[in-house]
Amino acid sequence: MAETGYKPMKDSGFIPILPKTLEEIGLTRNGLAVEAKVRPASITDLYNGETRTVHFETLQTIIDTLNRLGFEKGLSRRFTIEDIFTYDARTKKSSE
Rank of each mutant, 00 (worst) to 15 (best):
R39H: 13
K20R: 12
L46R: 00
G31T: 00
T44M: 08
T86I: 15
S42L: 13
L75R: 04
T80D: 13
R90T: 15
I25Q: 01
V34F: 10
R90Q: 13
F71L: 13
R52Q: 13
L27I: 10
K10E: 06
T28C: 05
E3C: 08
T4E: 14
P40F: 00
V54Q: 02
E82Y: 13
H55W: 04
K20G: 10
G49A: 02
L18S: 03
T58K: 14
P19M: 14
R29H: 02
G13L: 11
K93F: 02
T91A: 14
A36C: 11
A36I: 06
N30E: 07
K93N: 13
L66V: 09
T51H: 07
L22Y: 00
R78H: 11
S76V: 09
M9A: 13
L22F: 03
F71G: 01
R90E: 11
N30V: 03
E96F: 10
T21C: 03
G5E: 10
G74L: 10
T80I: 07
E24M: 05
I84D: 05
D64W: 04
I43Y: 00
F79P: 14
G5P: 05
K73A: 14
E57S: 15
P8K: 15
I62D: 01
L32G: 00
M9R: 11
E96A: 06
M1P: 15
G31L: 00
G70M: 08
Q60K: 15
K92A: 12
T86M: 14
T65N: 01
T80E: 14
Y6K: 12
I15L: 12
Y87G: 13
D88S: 06
R39V: 05
L66D: 03
A89D: 06
N48I: 01
E96T: 11
I43P: 03
I17S: 10
R68K: 13
T53G: 08
L59E: 06
T86G: 10
T86L: 13
P16G: 05
R52T: 15
E50T: 08
L22N: 03
D83C: 04
G49E: 02
N30L: 12
G49Q: 05
D83W: 03
T21Y: 03
D83L: 05
G26C: 05
F71P: 01
K73W: 12
M1A: 08
T53L: 09
M9N: 12
T51E: 11
H55P: 00
G74R: 07
L59W: 03
F85S: 03
T91W: 12
K7T: 14
E72K: 11
K20A: 14
K93W: 00
D45F: 09
P19C: 12
L75I: 05
G74C: 08
K37N: 15
K10L: 07
E96V: 07
I43D: 01
L66E: 02
K20D: 12
M9Y: 04
S76M: 04
L59T: 09
S95L: 02
D11V: 01
T80F: 10
